[in-house]
Design a protein around this nucleic acid. Structure first.
Length: 395
DNA sequence: GATCCACAGGAAATAGTGGCTT
DNA sequence: AAGCCACTATTTCCTGTGGATC
């Protein structure tokens, strides 16, 4: 069943041929002993960016393995949860030193850089540094500045070539980089467009062929998983998760065939978990904002504009005995909630303004009412929502 | 075509927070 | 306890937008 898991790296990515080729052209100078281009991969999550980088670097390594004149080393640093360049370099040093090495602690940033370059000199040859989810370092982009320029600055030996592959979910990230970082890092940019439903189906089918016994899939199961994922973020990971969960549900019940009902149920369960993890760590104010939207949904007033939602929010804040934020801040909250996939908005041309947004829930009311009591730090608001829902016959 | 409206979101100012030092 | 520093959250202020209205 491993093959359905998300960290499985397939040995072919037919849906990403173009991107693989682009990355290939960027990296191929390594095979000639010169420096590969610094490359930036960006696109939404679950679009195969990491898989593409892994597959291509692996191929490159295999291709050049038999040659003595080329020596390629791949180092990958997983940057999520590392919100500073400092931590990224620390982890890089750890990776470079090989398995078992400790992450150096307590050194100033410059020393860490020197350690990294020292290790790189030791390793020699062509070193490709993959920084996965680099966007989590925010605007602290020192690593992205130093690494690609190390050879120009004389930090590393002439025969050592360094190149960086940056992977980002965030389109904005690239724009926010300092101009000189952008110049060096972004020799080559590869954009990953979301998969369409057909491509998702192909991906699922390939994995299912390997992981599941023949003929256990009811007609339309793959299509349904793909369709659900395509409607949402078009993420292959998500589609696989639906399929995997459905398979597990089937297993657990000792049944043989994976049916459409299993998929429905799997989706329901996964979505619930997603909502829960999306909102459990939000602040009280964010919860109030979400409660306000929920309240309006109950009253059938959605989609609503931010000002309308704000008024409701103020009332709820009053009930909760909390000082409300100003409208400006409230708008940011709504956008945050959108980021966490609990809200949707539509952009409209205004009647008397530039553009305005209309928000609605991105998740079902039932689920939201379900998880709200578990995440909210007061009892009043969930109770209030329940009562309102009952009044309007929504539960 | 100038002006207005009412909104989105950028920028700067200010408040709040937690760690560390004295 | 007070002061300092770095960082984040929030508020305040402001500019840009694009159809409506004159």
């Amino acid at each position: 069943m491993d093959i359905l898991q998300k960290d499985f790296v397939p040995d072919a990515l037919p849906e990403r041929e173009d991107e693989l080729n682009d990355l290939h052209s960027a990296l191929i100078p390594a095979a000639r002993g010169s420096t590969p281009l610094n490359t930036f991969l960006y696109g939404k999550s679950g679009q195969g960016k990491t898989a593409t980088a892994r597959l291509k670097t692996k191929q490159l390594k295999e291709q050049t393995e038999s040659r003595d004149d080329v020596d390629i080393t791949i180092v990958t640093v997983q940057c999520n949860s590392l919100n500073k360049s400092y931590h990224v370099i620390g982890n890089l040093v750890k990776q470079l030193r090989g398995p078992g090495a400790q992450k150096p602690r307590g050194y100033p940033q410059q020393d860490l850089f020197e350690m990294a370059f020292e290790e790189m000199n030791k390793i020699g040859g062509t070193i490709i540094v993959v920084l996965d989810e680099v966007d989590s370092i925010g605007n602290d982009d020192d690593v992205l500045y130093e690494l690609p320029r190390a050879s120009h600055n004389g930090y590393i030996d002439d025969d050592v070539k360094i190149s960086v592959i940056g992977i980002s979910n965030d389109f904005q990230f690239r724009d926010n980089l300092r101009p000189k970082v952008k110049d060096t890092l972004c020799d080559e940019e590869i954009e990953f467009k979301p998969y369409n439903a057909k491509q998702l189906q192909a991906i699922l089918r390939r994995r299912a062929d390997k992981a599941l016994k023949d003929d256990v899939l009811e007609e339309g199961v793959i299509e349904l998983c793909s369709a659900y994922a395509a409607q949402d973020k078009a993420s292959a990971r998500q589609a696989l998760r639906y399929l995997f969960k459905a398979a597990r549900l089937t297993d657990e019940r000792g049944e043989k065939d994976i049916t459409l009902e299993h998929v429905e149920e799997a989706k329901e369960e996964i979505d619930r978990e997603l909502i829960y993890s999306g909102i459990e760590n939000l602040t009280t104010h964010d919860h109030l904002a979400l409660a306000a939207v929920t309240f309006l949904e109950i009253q059938n007033e959605l989609p609503a504009r931010s000002k309308r939602i704000y008024q409701t929010y103020r009332k709820l804040a009053d009930v909760n005995d909390t000082d409300p934020s100003v409208l400006r801040r409230f708008r940011d909250r709504l956008r945050d909630l959108e980021l966490y996939n609990v809200l949707n908005f539509e952009e409209n041309a205004g009647y008397q303004e530039g553009t305005y947004y209309e928000y609605k829930l991105a998740v079902s009311l039932d689920m939201l009412l379900d998880v709200f009591p578990a995440v909210s730090d007061s009892d009043d608001i969930p109770a209030l929502l329940k009562e309102e829902a009952r009044k309007h016959n929504r539960i």
